[in-house]
């Protein structure tokens, strides 16, 4: 028994090192004085962060990415609310196959989605733009949002709705007074997850980017230039902190939702 636990400890230790290796190196190189991203380290500097502040192209890319991420978050959450509500509350013809189809982008290789959207846009004679990336992102984020929101709607006792109705409220008011407050944490979590996925998405963005780059597309372009690498490390550190911050907020809301509906906590999302 003791040996087994010992094995596990070593195994988990190595695993965490493997898992966190890149994430730990990111800030290490971001604060490293040398312009070459390799060991040994040569000293502490915040220079690379200040470089970020003056980089105009980066700011444009960041603004594009933010715009896309916000739009994606709002629209995929909206579409997901409808789908999650429909699938958890109503039984309708072909529900399983419709839901399966809507969830398909979750298991489809992203390159396929990128390629097929590219084909349609070119064939239809549209220009590649930030909109084409946004559409692709809404498509891949919606299934994640549905997964989160379905559990939020599923945790909702149907009799709460009936009780509200029975006590004399209209359907419309029931939605805003009872359903919406109770799934609100799920909606916030869904918005944040979609935002985070979109902000980091590269494969589709690379296929569908026109002349305006998103942040990951910009990073991809810079990876070729060794001199730019420390700056990218600083950027990566900032992005990581933003992502973790957003995730912590999302998790907080999810937990609050669980507490509110009085259902036992069953672990993380995804």
């Amino acid at each position: 028994m003791r040996g087994k636990i010992g094995f596990f400890k070593w195994f988990i230790g190595f695993f965490l090192l493997f898992l966190y290796g890149p994430a730990i190196l990111l800030p290490v190189f971001a604060f490293n004085a040398s312009s070459i991203v390799s060991f040994p380290l040569s000293g502490f500097t915040t220079e690379w962060f200040s470089v970020l502040l003056t980089n105009g192209t980066l700011h444009v890319a960041a603004r594009n990415s933010l715009l896309i991420a916000v739009t994606t978050a709002i629209f995929s959450t909206l579409l997901a609310v409808l789908a999650a509500r429909a699938s958890t509350r109503f039984s309708f013809f072909g529900r399983r196959s419709i839901m399966g189809f809507v969830m398909l982008p979750m298991v489809l290789p992203e390159i396929i989605i990128g390629v097929s959207l590219l084909v349609v846009i070119i064939q239809m004679g549209f220009e590649l733009s930030l909109w084409s990336i946004t559409m692709g992102h809404i498509l891949i984020c919606t299934p994640f949002c549905i997964a989160i929101l379905s559990s939020a709607f599923m945790n909702l006792d149907k009799s709460l709705e009936e009780a509200s109705f029975d006590l004399g409220q209209t359907r419309w008011n029931t939605f805003w007074l009872v359903i919406f407050p109770l799934v609100m944490p799920g909606i916030v979590a869904s918005l944040l997850i979609a935002f985070t996925i979109s902000l980091d998405e590269f494969i589709i963005a690379f296929f569908l980017a026109g002349t305006e780059p998103t942040l990951p597309v910009y990073i991809w372009g810079q990876l070729r230039f060794p001199a730019k690498l420390p700056g990218l490390m600083a950027l990566g550190t900032v992005l990581l902190l933003v992502s973790i911050g957003l995730l912590l907020i999302a998790d907080f809301f999810r937990r609050r939702g669980i507490r509110k509906t009085g259902i036992e906590n069953t672990g993380g999302f995804l």
Partner: peptide, 16 residues
């Protein structure tokens, strides 16, 4: 149910 899911389904049909 179908009415509620139609925007999501429509989007997926159009873009997938």
């Amino acid at each position: 149910g179908l009415f509620l899911i139609s925007p999501t389904l429509g989007f997926a049909l159009l873009l997938l």
